[in-house]
Structure formats: C-alpha cells, structure tokens
C-alpha cells in the first residue's frame, strides 16, 4: 500500500477505514438489529464504493486508459460491484446475517487489496486489444455474482440447519424463506456461468490471436494456475447446472456446490496471484511520478 502515490494512498486509506467501520456496524447489526445501524451501514458502504470509484479514476488518469490492467484494479472494481450489490440487495433483504456477512466480506476484500496495492501500470503493448476489456469485465462480473451466490448459499445452509435442529424461533422475520434463497442462489449461479463463459471465450480468442506476441505457449496456458482454477470453476458450475436441471439436484447439494465454485473462482482471481506463480499477468512497467522517475 505504501507504494501507492500519495493521493491514491489517502483514498485507499479512506476505503480501509470505511471497510473497518462497515465491519463494526455489521457486527453491531448482528448483536442489536436497529434501523439506524442498517442505514449507517448502507451509507458507509456507499462511501467506500464512491472512494473506490474515485481511486479507479485516478488510476485511469495515470495510465490514460481503462483501469483494469492489474489484480489491484480488479479487486477495487470487484469492491465497487459488491458494494452496489450490497446496497441494492439490502433494500429487499432486511436480514442482519446477510448485511453483516457482506460487510465482513468487503473488509476481507479490502485487506487483500491492500496486500497487492501498487502503482498503476499500463497493459503490455501486445495485450492491448478490445477483447481484453470484455474479458476482464466478464470475469469480474462472474466473480461478483458467484460471491453473491455463495453468501446466499451460506444463508440457505444456516437456515436449513436451524430448521433441521428445530431451533427456528430465531429465524422468524430474520431470514428469507428457503425457496427464495434457493432461487437467488440459482440466479447468481446462472448469470455467473454466462459471464464466466464469455470471459473464457474472449480469453481463448486472446490466447489464440496473441499467443506468439505474449511469449506464452499452449502448454503455458493450460498449466497456468489461474487458468486451471478458472476452468475448474467453470466445469463445476456447468456440472451443477446440469445436475440441477437434469436430475433435480437442489437444496443442500446446490448450496455446497456453489461454495466450491466460489472457492475455485476466488482462488483463481486472488489466491493464484498471491500464492502461486501465474503467467496470466500482462501489466507493463509501473507509471512513475516525475520525482520517482
């Protein structure tokens, strides 16, 4: 984070503070359901998303282009989309569990973003095609939707556990019905599958068109951790949807498979960059300030 230019560092610090505040509010909401806390949480998340948006504008100005070239920008974009998803869904999902879970999820994302934060950089010249924008956008949308789906799946599993244990008093008026949760879970999964399919297709087109200029062989592509995990996630997603519509698999199985897909996809997006070596990185050298230069 310290590598960020000063204005971006200040903005990111604001995002970090807002994320902590949101997490605290999320915890308070779990303890004491209060409309004022819920409203404050919504405002804090809106602030965080707004600051993240301004940060992306700064990055865009620095590289004079579309600011989705690196993992940091992708995470910031993910943060904005998740923030908007949260604000939108909190209008009809009035449940402390959901709001609290989302707030903590946002904090985790911001902390992870802090670990990979660095100065803005342009794409490698070879990777600069219109396909890359579609590819990056599709992948981020798929990620946001699968995270949303996973949150809903967790709520489904929790609600079902309580119903099985016959400890249901705490659920009344606090959790949506199981069929509503399942419908939302499935909706997220379906749209995520479509977005991921588009992302993979555009990625394959890019790989074919630019493989020689990007110094990546077919072997490099199919053994790259990020690509392998993304493909695995897509396959599990396909299998889940086939089982759902073919054999009528639903409920607990559907929720668990959603969580597995989410794990693979989040690991592909973030974990593989942090933990494994990936050739799926087409960032050019960082843009330096005149002083740094």
């Amino acid at each position: 984070m310290v590598q960020l230019p000063v204005p971006e560092r200040i903005l990111f610090l604001g995002i970090l503070v807002a994320a902590f505040a949101a997490a605290v509010l999320g915890y308070l909401l779990r303890v004491r359901e209060d409309v004022r806390i819920r409203r404050s949480l919504r405002i804090v998340v809106a602030w965080m998303s707004g600051l993240a948006g301004i940060l992306l504008v700064f990055r865009a100005a620095a590289i004079r282009g579309f600011p989705l070239t690196g993992i940091f920008e992708s995470m910031i974009f993910l943060l904005i989309l998740l923030g908007i998803t949260f604000i939108w869904s909190s209008l009809f999902l009035h449940h402390a569990w959901f709001a609290s879970g989302m707030a903590w999820g946002l904090l985790v994302l911001v902390v992870l973003a802090a670990t990979v934060a660095g100065p803005a950089s342009t794409l490698q010249k070879e990777a600069q095609t219109p396909w890359i924008a579609i590819h990056a956008l599709s992948m981020i949308i798929a990620g946001v939707l699968i995270v949303f789906s996973a949150v809903i799946a967790v709520l489904w599993l929790y609600s079902s556990r309580r119903l099985k244990d016959k400890r249901i008093s705490a659920l009344f008026g606090k959790m949506p019905s199981l069929d509503k949760l399942e419908a939302l879970n499935l909706l997220g999964l379906q749209f995520s599958f479509v977005a991921l399919s588009i992302g993979l297709f555009t990625g394959i087109v890019l790989a074919i068109v630019k493989s020689s200029s990007l110094n990546m062989t077919i072997h490099d592509w199919i053994t790259d951790s990020k690509i392998v995990m993304t493909l695995l996630a897509w396959l599990i997603m396909l299998l889940t949807l086939l089982l759902k519509y073919g054999l009528g698999v639903r409920g607990k199985a559907l929720a668990r498979m959603t969580l597995i897909v989410c794990f693979f996809l989040v690991f592909a997006f973030i974990g593989s960059t942090l933990l494994c070596k990936s050739g799926h990185d087409f960032q050019g050298p960082p843009i330096l300030t005149p002083e740094e230069a």
């Binding site: 119903l163 249901i168 009344f172 959790m175 949506p176 019905s177 199981l178 069929d179």
Partner: peptide, 18 residues
C-alpha cells in the same frame, strides 16, 4: 412472535415457502 399452534405452523411454512 406467535404463540398458537396454527400461528407457529404458518410461520414455519413461511420459512420454507415465500
């Protein structure tokens, strides 16, 4: 919260079906 068998049964159904 409801305190009759019928009321609780309806609440319970509401946790399963929207």
């Amino acid at each position: 919260r409801r305190v009759s068998v019928a009321g609780v049964a309806v609440d319970l159904a509401g946790q399963l079906f929207s």
